[in-house]
Design a protein around this nucleic acid. Structure first.
Lengths: 225, 225
DNA sequence: TCATACACTTAACGCTGTTAAGTTTCGGAG
DNA sequence: CTCCGAAACTTAACAGCGTTAAGTGTATGA
């Protein structure tokens, strides 16, 4: 009797319908447009039906975040192949900024909207696994850079290094998003700007002798190896 | 006859009452607690009375932001006395982070909440005046650093440099604020962490020969001069 | 003294997240 | 076959939100 299983499968289907509708809504209309009633309308259920699948609205949002975190981690997985930790860090920085600018609503939700902390057990993401947890990826890369003696000696803490580079790139992304239309700041072109942020961060953590003399770092990738 | 003047003065009084109440509300209870009805209750007016003084809720919020921007600029004004642009930049970074962590709700409002761009004419802040506009202060400092040949030659654009260091520090602050309770990131102590962010940023923009060999920069302040 | 301009209030609209109670549907036990 | 109970879902409602139209009162200038 696979009745129970079928029931569960059907319920799961509705659950994903809800998530898909919610995602579509705020990809098209932005975060504020995601309301329980609009989700319900999109999937042709009553608003209260959502509460049978999620405790409240925040739970819907958190579930969305989870899958988006996974997408970011997936992008990072390809970058894991880069052998040199510094170049891996650089590539991750570009990928992160690119992800953010391509999916601004997702990014807002994931990193700029304060929601009550996500308890790991109810999340689909395995914390610490660098194939699923993007932060763990950066942590791992920072740790390798430290091990190989590439960083300044006082930067001997992978958490600290990860937080430094993450701060720089997140800062760039989030300022662009919230203040891009402000008249009092004359934003530089995206490409040049993010390159500069990443270059400065990496140069700032590198051990002095390791820092290449060239300007943009691009041409000096293998010089260290 | 000063009737008109008195009327205007009284109206201005109510206006500041509204702003004070709004500020008190979200300092104590956070951003979401600031509702028109609660403001009205606090000042013992009806909710609609607010609309006689502000076009809508966003206008109230914008007015709050303005005065908070001014406060930050006031802190920067003291730092303007630091002669060396690099040390001035460092001091501004610490002041900025300190301001943010001391007034997290203000900071959220000012830099992390997307509101429709603030047209300069309806703002009290004189854009570009470094005594009122904190961004102008950083811009000025970055410009001086460039003029004095302290920065890497490819960083010849004050806007770009200002945006780089602002990104780094804003990133640190805003990640702390939105993700400080996340279990998957092991935050380092504030003091050490912000020092590291500022050190890395500054070292990343400095012309190589100029970079002092010491770790924290603190002891090397005058070494360059 | 009277009309008017102005500050303000009352009542309402349409929206939000959320809940209590009611309805429908359907598999399994007697 | 019948009846029970559980599960999925809906309807109606509550309290709150920002905002607006209409109405009230008061003080000022003519």
């Amino acid at each position: 009797m696979g009745m129970k299983e079928r029931r569960e499968r059907e319920k799961e289907e509705v659950r994903t319908k809800i998530l898909d509708a919610a995602r579509a809504l705020f990809v098209e209309e932005g975060y504020e447009a995601v309301t329980m009633r609009k989700i319900a309308q999109a999937i042709e259920y009553s608003p209260t039906a959502i509460y049978l699948h999620f405790r409240d609205k925040k739970a819907v949002i958190n579930a969305l975040c989870d899958t988006d975190f996974l997408k970011l981690a997936t992008r990072f997985r390809k970058i894991a192949e880069v052998a040199d930790p510094i170049e891996r860090l650089r590539a991750a920085g570009f990928a992160y900024a690119d992800f953010a600018m391509r999916h601004p609503n997702h990014y807002r939700l994931m990193f700029m909207t304060p929601h009550p902390p996500h308890s790991p057990e109810e999340s689909e993401i395995e914390v610490g696994n660098r194939d699923e947890d993007a932060y763990a990826f950066v942590l791992w890369t920072a740790g390798e850079a430290i091990e190989q003696g590439l960083l300044r000696p006082e930067l001997d803490d992978a958490q600290l290094v990860a937080q430094i580079v993450w701060s720089a790139i997140h800062g760039w992304v989030s300022l662009r998003m919230t203040k891009c239309n402000e008249p009092w700041v004359d934003w530089r072109p995206q490409k040049r700007s993010i390159e500069a942020v990443i270059d400065v961060s990496i140069r700032g953590i590198l051990r002095p002798q390791q820092a290449p003399a060239e300007t943009s770092g691009r041409g000096a990738r293998k010089a260290r190896a």
